[in-house]
Simulated scan of single mutants.
Amino acid sequence: MTRTRYAPDRGLTSRMVTTMFLIGLLYVVLIGVLLAAFQNAWPLVLLFTGGLFVAQFWFSDRIAAYSMGAREVSPQQAPELHAAIDRLCALSDLPKPRVAIADTDVPNAFATGRSQKKALVCATTGLLRRLEPEELEGVLAHELSHVAHRDVAVMTFASFLGVLAGTVTRMALWSGMMRGGGRNGNNQAQILFLIIPLVSAVVYAVSFLLTRLLSRYRELSADRGAALLTGKPSALASALTKVSGQMAQIPTRDLRQAEPFNAFFFAPAFSGNSFSKLLSSHPTLEQRLEQLGRISRELGR
């Protein structure tokens, strides 16, 4: 990874590595089950899973940006946004990402891109209207921290297991239906027809929880990196408080449209069913403010 001035966080990094190891272990287990179930077609299985991963890794960022209606803007179209990103990139030794704006009243920002050179940072019109310059800079520093640590690539890999598990389930069910649900097959076919969807469902559930845990770790790490880079944790805390408070004033329909992309966002877009800490893609506001408060005290000393 290209060295930047974003401060490392060894505690959070170790937890992220542990979570990624567990996700990788689940991936290996699922592939083993898949190969055991389709012994005569293992080359196709490996080709399929490899192709699925490459496609998701290559295009997931574009899909997210397109789905959110992000349009790239020039320095002439958004001079203040470009100026803030220019300052942060110079401060952090990062290559400048593409800059975009999404026309929505949901106050948020996100970063996409599988590498630092392919990154795109997007702010919504709702965010630009609500934040002061220092607050906006804190949010953009948070998103650039994701870029610096290649969090989009990490989360794409982590979420791939869940996609694969769902695909395996559909393949197994389709194969079972083609065989008449095993009515005319042998006992082994019937057992596989029952076991494969069950294993896939369990793997999907566990990978989903681990991915959400990993997402919460990376959000705390991005907050910390942004606060230390700018030296203004209070500005980031103010932006967090303001954005979280303004979410309640956004129409529920708009929040539900944005919620599938919570993993990319600076703050989650709640629609009423996302308040569970276990299932949330972001740590609670209290956890984030507590960490920023500690950093502020450390910088004060």
Results as ranks from 00 to 15, higher is better:
176 G>A: 07
178 M>V: 11
179 R>G: 14
179 R>A: 12
181 G>T: 03
181 G>N: 08
184 N>Y: 14
184 N>C: 02
185 G>C: 07
187 N>Y: 05
187 N>W: 07
188 Q>V: 07
191 I>N: 15
194 L>E: 04
195 I>V: 14
197 P>L: 01
199 V>E: 01
200 S>R: 00
201 A>T: 08
205 A>M: 07
206 V>R: 00
206 V>N: 00
210 L>G: 01
213 L>K: 14
215 S>R: 08
215 S>V: 06
216 R>S: 06
219 E>D: 06
220 L>I: 04
223 D>R: 05
224 R>A: 10
226 A>R: 06
226 A>P: 02
226 A>W: 09
227 A>Q: 08
229 L>F: 05
229 L>H: 04
230 T>C: 06
233 P>L: 08
234 S>V: 12
234 S>E: 13
235 A>M: 08
236 L>R: 03
238 S>G: 08
239 A>Q: 04
239 A>Y: 07
239 A>I: 06
240 L>K: 01
240 L>E: 01
240 L>S: 04
243 V>K: 00
245 G>H: 09
245 G>K: 07
250 I>E: 05
252 T>E: 14
254 D>C: 09
256 R>K: 15
257 Q>A: 15
259 E>I: 10
259 E>P: 10
260 P>Q: 12
262 N>E: 07
263 A>D: 13
263 A>C: 07
